[in-house]
């Protein structure tokens, strides 16, 4: 599994096995933040950024845990690292770009409990990716997440204008929409395995 080409890994993470629409990771922000196109784009950017950093950290930790032979600490150390990465990124952005910090707002700390980030760290370990492959995987996953979020936000903005029965409004409608979007992404399955 460790010798897949970088372009395949990227396409795989972004389209074929899209984190949101095929693995159901990060559904909470997907349903919660996809109301407006602008916030969806920003959220996608922030998640991609944290994914890249935590993927790098997870790679290092995995090497360390293998070296000291303590695999049972994997989950605990990953979640601690992700939480502290998010905290660190938050402080860093606050210090160097207050405008970006204000734009991201509450979404930044909420990334900690986004299962897509922890899922990414676990998947890349399971697949035995090397450092470059992990980075590309993280980039692909982040871009796939952004893509799903932005597509969904665009659809929902259009739906605001449509007349739907009262009963369907809200989460039920959003889920139906996500189902159709997910079926569309199934079409990419022909691109690879």
């Amino acid at each position: 599994m460790g010798n897949e080409s970088l372009s395949f890994i990227f396409l795989n993470a972004a389209l074929i096995n899209n984190f949101v629409l095929a693995y159901f990771l990060g559904i909470c922000p997907f349903l919660g933040v996809s109301g407006k196109l602008e916030t969806a784009t920003r959220m996608g950017g922030a998640v991609t950024f944290v994914m890249l950093i935590s993927s790098t950290c997870a790679y290092g930790i995995h090497q360390l845990l293998v070296a000291v032979d303590a695999p049972f600490l994997q989950l605990i150390s990953y979640i601690v690292v992700i939480a502290s990465t998010v905290q660190l990124v938050e402080m860093f952005i606050k210090k160097f770009s207050p405008s970006l910090f204000r734009a991201l707002g509450i979404f930044l700390p909420l990334i900690t409990t986004n299962c897509a980030i922890l899922g990414l760290a676990l998947f890349q370990t399971n697949k035995g990716y090397n450092f470059a492959q992990s980075l590309v995987y993280a980039l692909g996953a982040g871009i796939g997440f952004t893509l799903a979020l932005v597509l969904m936000a665009g659809l929902r903005e259009e739906l605001e204008l449509a007349e739907v029965p009262n009963l369907v409004k809200g989460t039920a409608l959003t889920l139906m929409l996500a189902g159709i979007l997910s079926l569309t992404f199934m079409g990419f399955a022909g691109l690879g395995g």
């Binding site: 159901f24 409608l173 996500a178 997910s182 199934m186």
Partner: peptide, 11 residues
Amino acid sequence: ILPGGGFFTMG
């Protein structure tokens, strides 16, 4: 069984 079905059933 596909992911789309999950969304539909939940909806």
